[in-house]
Structures are given as structure tokens and as C-alpha cells.
Design a protein around this nucleic acid. Sequence first.
DNA 1: TTCCGATTTATGTATATACATATGTCTGAG
DNA 2: CTCAGACATATGTATATACATAAATCGGAA
Lengths: 246, 246
Amino acid sequence: MTKPAAIAEDAPAALHQRIRTEIEAKILSGEWGPGFRIPFEHELTEQYGCSRMTVSKAISALAEAGLIMRKRRAGSFVARPKVHSAVLDIPDLRSEIEGRGETYAFQLVACTPRAPKTKSAEETELARGGDLLVLRGVHFASGRPFAIEDRLISLLAAPQARDVDFAAQPPGAWLLEHIPWTEAENRISALAADTETAQLLAIAPGTACLAVERRTWRGGEGVTKVRQLFPGEAYDLVACFGPSRG
Amino acid sequence: MTKPAAIAEDAPAALHQRIRTEIEAKILSGEWGPGFRIPFEHELTEQYGCSRMTVSKAISALAEAGLIMRKRRAGSFVARPKVHSAVLDIPDLRSEIEGRGETYAFQLVACTPRAPKTKSAEETELARGGDLLVLRGVHFASGRPFAIEDRLISLLAAPQARDVDFAAQPPGAWLLEHIPWTEAENRISALAADTETAQLLAIAPGTACLAVERRTWRGGEGVTKVRQLFPGEAYDLVACFGPSRG
DNA sequence: TTCCGATTTATGTATATACATATGTCTGAG
DNA sequence: CTCAGACATATGTATATACATAAATCGGAA
């Protein structure tokens, strides 16, 4: 009873922070896609009834966070998601491999849409009532199998995926291009290759493999879940951390 | 010839950015250690001969980046390195394990100072003319071996380490407390356990293990290199990424 | 002594203002 | 038509100012 409760539910007290949050929400929800020119400072100034310094502070913060690109005279634009701004990216395997001077190839093993298995909480959560696209493929580096990829794509989040030829373009690259993620979780573990895996990767059964399981979201809604298996000695994941920005 | 060359070598044009950089340098070099109270805004205002808004902008940026904690009335302080602010941390294993409700123990296997092997470029680079402290230990969760740790510590970067009892306090935790890192590189791979490893971890030889190799620096100078081996199925590394801050 | 409240002080937010700078756009000369 | 240069405009930086807010500190009452 000391004070009236906050007017809005979760409104940050500071105006510049509220502005920042609202713009961020528009970007993360996809409403303002990559390349979209966000309103000019003077427009936001009018909209929020505040000074330019305040909206500038909000937008500048988003720019530092990498969500927005600012250009004098032109305006401020939603940034195209730069994969490399994310730490530990495994960008897509193509550029990874070609960066080493090897040739890259992807072979699609299976690709079928289906309903999520009701038993799998993970699948039903990802599908959110829609269907899933279930994929399996093998990545090759200079002709040698390099990784197995098993992937689920939410057709609710990415309906266009149904009509894409993933034999021509690996799903990871396509997704990055069309449904960039905003949140991701990587889970890394080691396990021994079973017979089927070993056969696809052309290694001995029981060989130690690195398993990378990654789930991504866009504005809180699940987009895809992928599990990549690398023959142990063939691959190192490297992640570097440093202060603020380079 | 259009204009006189920039006065300073790499001075950012903007004053607030120069201030930010200079403070950042003091922190990263260790000159201003964790907990140090940086000068008040009005002092910096005087020092740089600029307005409070300008120094405030610089300090606020560092605060957002997590390098600094600000407290009203008290001042601004160099933040204690929050392990969890770093992505993919493997914080220290103790808190990791105790967080799961298991009991933690560390057993020191070996701990000797010695000169770097001249053959190993990695060791000589880390030592930078000084000696290295070479450690091996095993981490236990609820009495079961959980990870092997092989570590090198630069005694030039951490001379106090020579006199620490690492049987009482695992080196990772001690280092975090006393010589926090500012840059880090993680290298993750999978490999099969050899006989010695298998024995220490109480697993079958050939079991798939997760190997995490991490090197850390403080203001560009090498501090430590550690390699941790986890029995494959027993451990998952998890890393989450999202926009700006949570 | 202990505890509560007033005071002091550093940061937090916001405004109005000014000028600098980069860059689209438009215009006119050739 | 092409290109150079003038112009308009959105962002970038910085100042001076004002008031809000949290918290350390000091002073006095119990």
C-alpha cells in the first residue's frame, strides 16, 4: 500500500529502456525483419513524446548489441543476423569446411513432413500444434563423411521449408537465411558411434564422437532442433571469449 | 595532405569512447582489480575536462558490458568476474556439481613447479620466461570420479600460486578468485579414454570422453591452460545464447 | 549502546540545445 | 547523359541543467 502498483505489468521504469524493449520485441518477433528501416529518431521522439536524447539512447544500445545498424542520413536498420556475432557458432558447416580449403558436399538421406510424436514432449513443444519436417543428411569434406545431421524443423515457424529442396541447399544454411534464430541452446557431449552411425560416417563402431545438439528459437518460439555427430578426432569446437567487443 | 594526421595513434575520435577505452585498459591490465572503486564521475569530469554526461556514457557502457558495477551514493566498482556472464563457462566444477545436489571433492594427484619444455611452443609461450606450475587432479561427484584435470599455470602471471595448497582448494576456483581471466579460448573434442585415464576415471578403456581444453589470458598475457576429461555419458556442456541481456 | 530518521552524495534519467559529420538527393554545367 | 558540387537531413557527439533515487553517514532519542 505504500505506493500505487506499477501502471504496466513489466514496464521498465526508465523510458529509454521501455523504448528499447519495445523495439527489440518488434525485431525479435520478426515484425521488423532484417533490413527494415526503423522509424527515424524524430518520429519516435514524437511517438513517445520525449526528447531525441532519450530515443537515441535506446537505439544506440540496440546498435551496440548488434541488433541494429545505424547510418547517417539514411536511418537505422534492423541488422541481418551475423552468425559470427554469436559465440560458438558452428556457422554452417559449408563455410567452415570451405574455409579450410576443402570441398564441401551435402547428401540428403531422408526428408519427410510428419506430425510430432505425441510421446515426445520435445517434439510436441517444438511443433506447437503444427507439423514437423524431419531431416537426415550427411556432410562431406573433400569427399569424406564429416558429420551426420538429424534435424527437426517446425513447419509452423518455417512453413516455406516444406517446398525447399534440401538436397541442393543444406537445411542449416537455408534456415539461417530465412528464419534466423534469436536464441539458441547448444548441448555438447561425447559418445561412442553405434553401428548405423559408424557406417554413415565410415568409421569403426565404438569410435568416440562429438555430439552437438542445438535448439533454436525466434522470439521465444521454437524453430528447429538439430543434432550433429562428428567423428571424434576429426573436429574441434573452438569458442573464444573476450571483453565487450573486438 | 587533406588534413593533419590524427594526433594520437589509435585514439577513437569520440571522447566518451576514449574514456571508456582507457578505463577498460586499466581494468584488463589488472591495475584496477576486482572491487576497486573507480574515480567518481565528477573526478573524471575534471580529469578529462568534459561534462558529466560524457563520462557517464563511458562508464555506463562498461557497466552494460559487465566490467563495472555501479551503486548509487557509493560509486562505481570494478566487477568481480562473474563466471556466469561468460557463455559456455564450465564455471568451476564445484558449484556445477553442488548445484545438482551432489557432494564435491577434489583430489590432487601431482603438483610441481618446473621450467617449460623448450620443445613445446605452447608451454614456452605461456611461461614467458618464467616457470610453470604443473598440476594434475581428479574431480569427484558423490564419490565417483567425474573429471581429470591437467593444468599449467604461469607463475609469472600468478606467482602466489606457488604457495597455495591445491589439495584444499581446486586450482580452477583459486585462479578465478585471484587471477580472473579476461580472455579465454575453449577447445572441445571427443576422444577415447586411454588406459591411464580410464583407470583414474574408473571407466572402461576406450570409453568416449569429452575433452575440454581451455586457455585463458589476462590482458593479453597467458595465465593458465587446462584440459579436462569427462566420461562421455556423464557430462553435457550446455551453452545458451540470446539477445543482449536477460 | 542501539536504532530510527534526516542529511548528504553519487548515480540514474530526462530535457533542450548546439554543432559535427556522413551521405542521400537534387541541380546545373559540360 | 554524366558527373561534380551544393544542399538537406539523420545520426553522432557534447554541454548545461534539473530532478529522481538509492544508500552511506551522521545525529539524536530511547
